[in-house]
Design a protein around this nucleic acid. Structure first.
Lengths: 142, 142
DNA sequence: GTCTCAGTTGAGACATAGTATCAACTTGCC
DNA sequence: GGCAAGTTGATACTATGTCTCAACTGAGAC
């Protein structure tokens, strides 16, 4: 089963219709090799209007099919990603985004809750750095 | 020495002029008891134009006088804060923002760097929860 | 004092990232 | 077929900034 079909089934299972516009947006997202801006997708995706592209991205985001990453410069991007709680490691050199398996702060949350009196409900974490390839490039310039 | 004078000195020490417009923006920021939106400040601050308010906020942000917090709903706010690396604990009930002394992820960064091969340069963390007062309100409703 | 030049300002245009509105269209179901 | 609900796309609007550019200001040189 293709990714497109898989996602279509998830949509249907959640009570949403799988329309040609939505299939076009999903196909456009799957065709992207890396993260993308919503507006950029809207421009490239001829099968759906801008509002529909934004709506579909939000829908897929709610379903956990895509997730939002805040880049180094503060701009939001989206990428196809596994669902569930995870964080991202963004390369400031090439822009690659890598999923992080472990949640780096889960252990610290109880300490913070105890110290602050807060009942912690959620958190947002992005990590920025240089991937191995970009480090190698920096060391041995052309 | 007042906070306004203190910040003015910091500006001068960094090579910036302390103009009436900048003083007006700084005074407006200091008058705010809690976090504020840049546009809201621009509307309230009659001593400076909108562009100048945004420019001054960015300037103060660079100097570490104010810092940017991303609220629960994704909207950016600013608050007067100490400089240096720290994080925020945002109450989803009343919107209060509390500085966190410790960096919750500093310990985990080396592990992540080792596992991923990334050279980690920075990170962004916001924590969301309910402060003690809001928890009490929720338990004993009116 | 005044000249000069860099820094600063404000108005307004523009950019980006969305959301809201609403009439028209589509689809599933009776 | 017809109805109701879901969906769409064009467009307007909001929020949060940045950019441009002419005008202004102020600090130091003379």
């Amino acid at each position: 089963m293709s990714d497109l079909e898989q996602i279509s089934l998830e949509l249907e299972a959640s009570g949403y219709r799988v329309t040609p516009s939505r299939r076009a947006v999903i196909a456009a997202i799957l065709a992207r090799k890396t993260h993308f801006a919503a507006d950029e997708l809207a421009k490239r995706c001829r099968g759906a209007g801008r509002a529909t592209v934004f709506r579909t991205i939000r829908l897929l985001s709610d379903l956990g099919v895509v997730c939002r990453v805040i880049m180094d410069d503060g701009s939001p991007r989206y990428l196809v990603s596994r669902s569930g709680h995870h964080h991202h490691l963004v390369c400031t050199g090439c822009g690659t985004v890598q999923d992080l398996d472990q949640c780096a702060v889960s252990g610290a949350l109880r300490d913070i809750a105890d110290a602050s009196g807060y009942e912690i409900e959620g958190h947002w974490l992005e990590l920025y750095g240089r991937c191995a390839a970009c480090q190698a490039k920096a060391v041995v310039p052309a």
